[in-house]
């Protein structure tokens, strides 16, 4: 092509820069709320800002955090996955089957458990992308199915991993010299990987494309059915990882656990500024969202706020966080 360039186009650098600045400011804001929260609790109680308590917070964030990472992907497509909590349980039960029932090696159990999660994601993905069942319904069904299966397979009883102490070490052990449990590292690594997938790979770019205008993406030659399935498989895989972490931490697969976790994961994603209508969101936001949730629960517990009031307060915080995000967006627009 030999079209003469004109003077109208200004260098791309400029806008790229302002774009990053805008995004950075959003993260700084979310980060600031987290810091404020930590400061407030530190002032109110001397027990809050102590190394072991902070490690405890990170540890309790780890499982929900990994679930939330996975949920971020589907939520950015404009979908939702209600099954992440019970898929997590299903994965830990499957790990129990491989390791305890069949006496298999630990690594088989770990990989098998994670793949069980991926498989659930595949099922949801196919129902949603191919059969066009709305995500809410499809994943609701998968949630009930996995919940039931976990109970059936385990005979409603916990499966213990006491024969294989190494399994517990996976998350509760730590690198010698560091007093931070592996679970925290796993969460951090998973976050980096998720962030990388979302911003640097094709799946990530298509993820945003699906969320912002699926039909336009399809007409650009994007195989929307395929990529949507891929995204649900990713979410399932993250749930699988969370399942293994959960089982390892409790040193047992608890078949009755898991319902309700999906809502906490969604809450973390939303507090992190990802829009439920799709098309925008960040992994860093989700990580901060998950941290805000557990700092809050932990802080309230240290201040001996009653369990039921804790739930009420978390609910209020969700409203506040999301409303602040909406206000900020409105300001950016005008």
């Amino acid at each position: 092509m030999k079209l003469q360039p004109t003077q109208t186009a200004v260098g791309g650098q400029q806008a790229k820069k302002t774009g990053i600045k805008g995004a950075a400011r959003q993260k700084v804001l979310a980060f600031a709320s987290l810091i404020i929260l930590i400061l407030v609790f530190s002032l109110l109680s001397g027990n809050f800002f102590r190394f072991d308590n902070l490690v405890g917070i990170m540890l309790s964030t780890a499982v929900i955090g990994v679930l939330a990472l996975g949920s971020t992907f589907v939520i950015i497509t404009g979908g939702i996955d209600l099954s992440v909590g019970t898929v997590m349980t299903f994965s830990s039960v499957m790990a129990g089957v491989f390791i305890t029932y069949w006496n298999g090696p630990v690594w088989v159990g770990v990989i098998g458990g994670i793949l069980a999660g991926s498989l659930c994601g595949l099922v949801s993905g196919l129902m949603i992308a191919k059969m066009k069942i709305p995500p809410f319904i499809a994943t609701l069904a998968v949630m009930m199915i996995t919940k039931g299966l976990s109970l059936i397979i385990s005979g409603t009883k916990p499966i213990y991993f006491t024969d294989k102490p190494i399994f517990n070490k996976l998350t509760m052990g730590s690198i010698p010299g560091w007093e931070i449990p592996n679970a925290v590292w796993i969460f951090l690594i998973a976050s980096v990987i998720a962030g990388f997938i979302l911003t640097k790979t094709i799946v990530g770019r298509y993820n945003f494309a699906l969320g912002s205008n699926e039909e336009a993406a399809r007409l650009s030659g994007v195989n929307t059915v395929f990529w949507k399935v891929v995204i649900y498989v990713m979410t399932g895989t993250f749930s699988g990882i969370a399942g293994i972490m959960m089982a390892s931490r409790l040193n047992s697969a608890q078949p009755a656990l898991g319902s309700g976790y999906e809502l906490e994961a969604i809450a973390a994603v939303v507090i992190g500024g990802t829009s439920l209508s799709g098309g925008m969101g960040t992994i860093l936001g989700t990580v901060i969202g998950a941290l805000i949730m557990s700092v809050l629960t932990n802080g309230l517990r240290i201040l001996s706020v009653a369990q039921d009031w804790q739930t009420v307060i978390v609910g209020l915080v969700i409203i506040l966080a999301v409303y602040m995000d909406i206000l900020r967006r409105r300001k950016n627009k005008s």
Partner: peptide, 11 residues
Amino acid sequence: NSLSIKTPGIG
């Protein structure tokens, strides 16, 4: 440049 797209930048 070649299509003279008027935008402050590609971002």
